[in-house]
Design a protein around this nucleic acid. Structure first.
Length: 498
DNA sequence: AAGAACTGTCATATG
DNA sequence: CTCATATGACAGTTC
């Protein structure tokens, strides 16, 4: 009865969908007994026109089928598995590859120097511009020969789930970077400090330099933090640590116990400070040496030993050093040896520097902090140190390393925030794009449905059964199979199936 | 003066 | 256990 369908529907392009030979999939289906036989070989005047219509229809469906999933510009977004190696210029302190990446400064491979060389240049931009975006630009912009600033993998790992969750919960409120570090800058409203030793924090500003200032967790002193140092501090405290006060902490008996080596070391100490102010001239110069570890061997001391008496009686000695450190504290390592004469600003020492000075630690903080443990221990064996000296040295080493670690940690945190903000922006853009595509797809789908309906009606209007009677689309119904294909099935068959 | 940002330090966890 | 490193938290300083 419907044999004509076999020819009426030359447009079925997806014959593979013909699960049932008697039916046409992909839209028009006709029963095998449809009256197509009668039309066999007939050249209907509307065939070409219908063919064109079908092709147009299929073009629409193809458009949707192939366009939607693929033309998103975000398909190529690299969702880094968060384990990408970080390679930020100058940020090599905690990254092992910092040792292998040459720095622009000409073969300087000391990680500390690397840190000093770039981080110190970068961070001011972060701080003074006071925006994390600016920080990111600065960080990445100064990445030097490190291409493609990427994130520290480890830190990102914990954040990954939430980030990926954004894909599923795009309606989540924008995650501000602040929240990620919200606790980092806890204000002073927190409970009482848990420090036993930190009580002297900030005292130097209002407290005259006393021996309290020399107390520390090592039974030594806790002075002000480095920036605290006021001119008053510098001018009054440090000289007070000369022989007179040192004697309080460091008895002459101890000095005697140090032996000849220790005494020499003590002398070396005073001389060394004169010659190398950077050793104790503030955290930057102390913790970020301009020399490689191999170059940090004891300096030759050509100057005649300066007696403690001389030091005490000559504030200019310390003052010189302070002036030197004033030139280095905020400047590049190249400024270490700037002549202090023209700079009248007295600059104080950090707490550890003052402690070291007070206890006559015979080697620079730079070594204490940066030497590998073996070299450090070897260094300790070269001198006979008292228990308090040893404790101080170890504290200085611990604090110095931790300070660098904290700086690295904060730097990474900042970079992660910048990265995640960028990632969030990309995801939001992707979300908007997908929403637009979905809308367009739904619009096209509606068009297709309408055109399909029209085409069905047109096809049926052209068909005739053996008796020349037109088929009525009312005699057929659309049936969808589990595989998703839609067939036009005679209602009689539908009724039989039921 | 208040608050944000920065910094040093400690405690703790991890490898 | 020691050591190095990372990080949260706290407190002080600076702007």
């Amino acid at each position: 009865m419907c044999a004509a369908a076999s020819y009426v529907l030359p447009l079925r392009r997806h014959s593979e969908g013909l699960a049932n030979p008697g039916r046409l999939c992909g839209g028009v289906s006709m029963p095998t007994h449809a009256p197509g036989a009668r039309s066999h070989g007939a050249s209907h005047p509307h065939d070409e026109e219908m063919d064109l219509a079908w092709q147009e229809l299929m073009a629409i469906t193809e458009l949707q089928e192939f366009e939607v999933p693929h033309d998103s510009p975000y398909e190529n977004i690299q969702y880094h598995p968060m384990e990408l190696p970080i390679s930020l210029g100058g940020y090599g302190m905690a990254q092992s590859h910092s040792h292998t990446e040459p720095l622009p400064s000409g073969g300087e491979t000391n990680p500390d120097a690397a840190y000093e060389g770039s981080y110190s240049k970068v961070m001011p931009a972060c701080q003074h511009q006071a925006t994390r975006e600016a920080a990111a630009e600065a960080l990445y912009g100064h990445s030097g020969n490190h291409s493609g600033a990427q994130l520290n993998p480890r830190v990102l790992n914990p954040l990954q789930p939430s980030l990926m969750g954004l894909l599923e919960h795009m309606s989540l409120p924008s995650v501000g970077g602040e929240g990620l570090v919200g606790n980092d800058n806890a204000g002073p409203s927190h409970g009482p400090g848990r420090y036993v030793l930190g009580t002297s924090h900030g005292q130097s500003k209002h407290t005259p330099c006393t021996m309290d200032d020399l107390e520390s967790d090592s039974g030594l002193s806790l002075g002000s933090s480095p920036p605290l140092a006021s001119p008053e501090d510098a001018m009054t405290c440090v000289p007070a640590y000369s022989s007179t006060e040192v004697g309080l902490n460091y008895s002459h008996g101890e000095m005697e116990n140090m032996g000849e080596q220790g005494r020499r070391a003590s002398l070396f100490y005073s001389v060394d400070y004169q010659q190398h102010p950077n050793h104790y001239s503030g955290m930057h110069s102390s913790y970020f040496p301009v020399t490689q570890p191999s170059q940090m061997q004891p300096q030759p001391h050509f100057l005649p030993p300066m007696s403690m008496k001389h030091q005490q009686g000559s504030p200019s000695a310390l003052n010189d050093r302070h002036l030197n450190s004033s030139a280095t504290r905020e400047s590049s390592p190249q400024a270490f040896y700037v002549k202090p004469r023209g700079n009248p600003l007295p600059v104080s020492l950090s707490r550890d520097e003052r402690r070291a000075l007070a206890l006559k630690i015979p080697f620079p903080l730079e070594k204490i902090i940066n030497l590998p443990v073996d070299d450090f221990n070897e260094l300790l064996t070269q001198y006979t140190l008292t228990d308090s000296q040893l404790a101080l040295v170890r504290d200085i080493r611990r604090r110095g390393k931790n300070k660098v670690a904290a700086q690295n940690c904060r730097k990474r945190k900042l970079e992660n925030i910048v990265y995640l903000e960028g990632e969030l922006g990309q995801l939001q853009a992707q979300r908007e794009h997908l929403a637009r595509e979905r809308l367009e797809f739904q619009r096209n789908l509606t068009i297709v449905k309408h055109r399909l309906t029209d085409l069905y009606a047109e096809v049926f209007s052209q068909l005739r059964d053996e008796d020349g009677h037109p088929y009525s689309i009312d005699d057929y119904s659309l049936q969808q199979t589990p595989d998703g294909n839609v067939y036009l099935v005679p209602r009689s068959e539908v009724l039989e199936g039921e």
